[in-house]
Write a protein that binds this DNA or RNA. Sequence first.
DNA 1: TACATAGTGTTATATTATAACAATCTAAAT
DNA 2: ATTTAGATTGTTATAATATAACACTATGTA
Lengths: 135, 135
Amino acid sequence: MKIMHKEHILTKNQQIIFDLIDKSPEPMKAYSILFNVQKKGIKAPLQVYRALDKLVEIGKIHKIESRNAFIACHNSSCQVANATAFSICEICEKVTEISSVGLSKYLANFKDKDGMKYSKYNLEFFGLCKKCTLK
Amino acid sequence: MKIMHKEHILTKNQQIIFDLIDKSPEPMKAYSILFNVQKKGIKAPLQVYRALDKLVEIGKIHKIESRNAFIACHNSSCQVANATAFSICEICEKVTEISSVGLSKYLANFKDKDGMKYSKYNLEFFGLCKKCTLK
DNA sequence: TACATAGTGTTATATTATAACAATCTAAAT
DNA sequence: ATTTAGATTGTTATAATATAACACTATGTA
Ligand SMILES: [Zn+2]
Ligand SMILES: [Zn+2]
Ligand SMILES: [Zn+2]
Ligand SMILES: [Zn+2]
């Protein structure tokens, strides 16, 4: 898996949008991001999507595909933008990035019957978080 | 993981839409499905989405989240709609459902640090298929 | 300077998905 | 056969997500 270093210098729009996502306790959707940064001069969807694309590319944030939402990478050992795993609570929608050495090793080495070699994966687990299990 | 039996009797719309997806060599998008079934009397997006929702629920088709597209389940040993894995070629967009006993066992038994128990997962691998590797 | 590359601002538009409501069908249960 | 509950349908309208196209600006570097 290709290593993506995260020490990019962010541009103004990228920084504004990253800061917002990074502070958010939950994944943010593009138009919610747009609404929240309009006071900072980012007025159009495209400005948001362009920043999001770049932030995803360099691994500062990840997209939760099943939710069309974006979360900051809080996986300290995660130097890659292309090997991601999340747990998602189906009640409260809490999303957590999973950092398991065992899991990432297993998936990075997984080979299917066709011998296709993978350069990237995304895994989303669904269930109930602790809080929601107790309710 | 809850077992979803697939021996549902499909309604007219569900059958029309399943047949179309099942014959397609590649994942189909909702509005492409709509276009293709208009001659059969299905005229509105909602009719398509409702059938898709049901077909996903009963495990006859799966949604490829990263592509917003739908593929028929061709995994003969797959009796569940909630434990899915796919390989996706980033050039030709060929999608294959992975049926690996090892993989599904590993993921079904995976537990994260928080002890969250999962009821469902979706895994998407990305890379180059054999054909595209040779080009 | 000259050039290439990446980022920006803007308008318009494409694509994906759901809300709301009335009508109809289906499968039991009386 | 009649009632009832639930799922499904048909329809119009609208919401939510994402990209095309184009002119312009910043930044690094040769
Ligand atoms: Zn990460
Ligand atoms: Zn929860
Ligand atoms: Zn399947
Ligand atoms: Zn390919």
